[in-house]
Amino acid sequence: MIKAKNLSKRFGYTIAVNKASFEVKKGEVVGFLGPNGAGKTTTMRILTCYLQPDSGTAEIAGYNIHENPLEVRQKIGYLPENAPLYADMMVTEYLDFIGEVRGMPQSKRKKAINRMIEVTNLQSVIRRPIGELSKGFRQRVGIAQAMLHDPEILIMDEPTSGLDPTQIIEIRELIKELGKEKTVILSTHILPEVSAACNRVLIINDGEIVASGSPEELTQRAQGKGIITLTIRGSKDEVERGLKEFPRVEDVEWLAEEVSDSSISEGEIRNTEWGTPNSEFGTPKSETLHRFRIRTQQGQDLSEELFRFVVEKGWSLSELYKEQVSLEDIFLQLTTKDSLNG
């Protein structure tokens, strides 16, 4: 549906978008995620033919942004950042204006306006000037405006920014609903939003696309570092050697020594997800607890193998967990590392 190839745009010395290439398939809901000034808005402005890229091109529903900008705009509904609407117009008057400029005949316009008022729940404010509306209502008028001509593609720049939590949820639900039949691009810096509303995320930093994938994929990929922490009662050297020799373990790091008596350690065992301690966990009480961090090759998940290995060795395992990487971590990892390099 949308194919962008090597889009670049600079403003003076700032490179707002740097060779961005991406594709959005029909029916996808894609989130642009990135810190302030990453180039999300600029990319959207290029796709909607508001700005011309310095180089690169994009095709939207089969139309090229350079050759057929009017057709491209016809295919897209766009909600710019902060929903800039004409404050002096009333809601219906405004929607009518948009429909008229879009060349919709009057009868069709009327129907579309009524439908959008229903979809976006604007019934209570239709006769009020837009300038008097609360931010959430204005945002909804913005969405109504973008959807009026029933476009195949919807592009929304920070659709939930500045809204209160209830309204955020409402707008997200609305986007989800719309996403069922439309191709949607939205931008945000709110991470839960991407997980909540998008099938796919493009992480943008300094004008470059640094990662792309479904929220789950991205989490997995970053977890891909495969970090497992083990707390084992045993002799430090012996355990460390054993773990290092274990196949597919890349790196073992000793973190800490924990002093505890056996009764507590038994309790700990009971509390782990591994269930009740079994008899094989013989507990040589003379040795202390050691905590190790293991990094596996290619981030493979070795937790079960390691568990079995430890048990076979007759060491007492007090704790084993995979480090969870959240979307926040990935986001910070990708966006701060790159900004340091750049």
Binding site: P80, P84, V101
Partner: peptide, 8 residues
């Protein structure tokens, strides 16, 4: 931004 992203 809205005006100039309409098909005009």
């Amino acid at each position: 931004e809205i005006l100039m992203t309409l098909p005009v």
